[in-house]
């Protein structure tokens, strides 16, 4: 049996006897990912919807390419930027967030935000422009038109959630720089995988990878069920 096969069997054993440190890492991963996701969604969906709904947006020629660029931001660059901002000499150094989960959440939010804005904008723009007009003719207010349009675009908006979630739960560069991979404090699944691989603990690294994939699969399975419930198969 090769290294991969041995690592795989050992990984299953480790998963069976989940220890406290492993559970802590999993919980911190979920905490950082979900808090960053919720913030990115709360800010990004309204902004994406507003850009998508505003036909004559001043500066659209610049705003849209900037968003698209943001959708492909190299996470390690975001990590470096966040590191510098949160470091002692940085403008937000006073917060003391460097090497804390809060700092990691900031970096993850920056990564997820353009994805949410860009995909929500595209989803809203994909709704037939006759729909807002017909809603207005039914006596809808501008706010009601925006809500109805966003709900019509919900399949695309769900895709935005999935993309943002996938980008941040699997991200390693930014959380490594900003969090520092401190055991029991800022160690998440991705940074732990890097560390254990370097140490040659392939079984542990692989078991962490299996957990990470399982988390991603379970969440995406839930999102898919939601889409099916929305009437789209």
């Amino acid at each position: 049996m090769g290294t991969l096969g041995r690592a795989f069997t050992d990984a299953l054993g480790l998963l069976w006897n989940m220890d406290a440190a492993l559970i802590e890492t999993v919980l911190l991963t979920l905490q950082v990912t979900l808090v960053a996701l919720v913030i990115a969604l709360a800010v990004g969906i309204p902004i994406g919807a507003a850009i998508g709904l505003t036909r004559h947006l001043p500066g659209r020629w610049l705003i849209v390419p900037l968003i698209y660029t943001g959708m492909g931001l190299p996470p390690v660059t975001v990590g470096l930027f966040t590191y510098l901002v949160l470091s002692n000499q940085g403008p937000l150094g006073g917060l003391g967030w460097l090497f804390t989960p809060s700092g990691m959440i900031v970096a993850q939010t920056i990564i997820a935000f353009p994805l949410v804005v860009g995909l929500t904008m595209a989803a809203v723009q994909g709704v037939d422009p006759n729909l807002p007009v017909q809603m207005l003719s039914l006596g809808a207010t501008r706010r009601q038109v925006a809500t109805v349009t966003l709900l019509e675009a919900r399949v695309g908006v769900t895709a935005a959630v999935v993309a943002a979630y996938g980008a941040i739960i699997s991200e390693v560069g930014a959380v490594m720089l900003v969090g520092g991979n401190i055991e029991g404090e800022t160690r998440v699944l991705t940074t732990a995988i890097v560390l254990e691989t370097r140490k040659g603990n392939f079984a542990l690294a692989l078991s962490l990878g299996i957990i990470l994939l399982s988390l991603a699969f379970l969440t995406n399975f839930a999102f898919h069920r939601l889409q099916v419930h929305q009437g789209v198969r």
């Binding site: 037939d128 006759n130 729909l131 003719s137 039914l138 809808a140 709900l151 929305q230 009437g231």
Partner: peptide, 25 residues
């Protein structure tokens, strides 16, 4: 005042929900 257009845009919801939307709005 309300208009019925030649090509109605219905919401991705049930028929009943599409009728109800008028009163909801």
């Amino acid at each position: 005042v309300t208009t019925v257009f030649q090509r109605p845009m219905l919401l991705r919801r049930s028929v009943a929900a599409n009728v109800r939307i008028g009163r909801k709005l």
